[in-house]
Amino acid sequence: MTKVSLEALIAGVRTGGLVSFPTDTVPALATLPERAELIFAAKQRSQDKPLILMGAIAEDLWPYVKGSEEEYQIWQQVVSKYWPGALTLVLPASNRVPQVMNPNDPTTIGIRVPNSAIAQTILAQTGPLATTSANFSGQPALLTMAEIDAQFPTVLTLESNATAETSLGLPSTVAKWTGESWQILRQGAVSLD
């Protein structure tokens, strides 16, 4: 069993380990951005499916994207309305994003701030993490720490009393910036105006 305290989970991810924790959508599989290959390997995930960079607050994520002053204003308006929440924005990536986060297209990065106290607590102490849903690629998202523990026995998960929060069980909406407007790549819990 790899159920650990919040402190041990944070220490584990800081040392480059693979962890799982609840979010407002589905539980996340997470690691440091430069160790993202651990997620691809654990999930048996194809390299053409990029990971999401999750942060505690928007300010933690802005260094990982690049755009014009005008674009930042548009992005900030969307973020002010929907974050924290179930919306992932796919934006032009800055050179701070490790290529292993999105091996096939290192020019973009998906970013999100979850509306989850536990996730925000972890992310505030680790900095932004490479994340995705906790499941084998192509399988439904696992919704409980017990299921995650069974499928990924080496992944650190939170002790069950630390996971009283409920998640939607629905993935985040993914919206990609095209340079002038938003393209919905996956409709999830949030409907973008």
Rank of each mutant, 00 (worst) to 15 (best):
S94G: 11
T163C: 12
T15H: 07
L6G: 10
T2S: 14
L185M: 10
Q187L: 04
E59N: 11
Q47R: 00
N104G: 00
K81S: 08
P22S: 08
W83V: 12
T166K: 10
Q125Y: 07
T2V: 09
P140K: 01
S133Q: 03
V155A: 12
L142G: 04
P106A: 00
L89V: 14
L170F: 10
L61A: 06
Y64E: 05
Q120P: 10
N95I: 05
I52P: 06
R35V: 02
T23L: 04
S137G: 09
G85K: 07
K43H: 06
P63T: 10
V174A: 01
A119T: 14
V78M: 07
A164P: 13
T154M: 06
P50Q: 01
N115L: 14
L129D: 15
A189L: 10
L32C: 12
I122R: 03
T144M: 02
I122D: 13
G17A: 12
E69R: 03
I52R: 00
L168S: 15
E34T: 15
A11P: 05
D105N: 00
L123V: 13
Y64T: 03
L91F: 05
N161M: 06
T154R: 07
V13E: 08
E7L: 12
S172Y: 03
T144V: 07
R112Q: 10
Q151I: 13
I111M: 02
N104I: 00
P103K: 00
Y72V: 10
Q120H: 07
A58L: 08
A86Y: 02
S68C: 08
T178M: 05
Y64C: 06
N115D: 15
E71Y: 14
G188T: 14
D48S: 00
T126E: 11
I148N: 11
S80C: 04
P114K: 02
K43A: 02
V26D: 05
N95W: 01
E159K: 11
I148P: 12
T2M: 15
V4L: 08
S167F: 07
Y64Q: 06
Q76W: 03
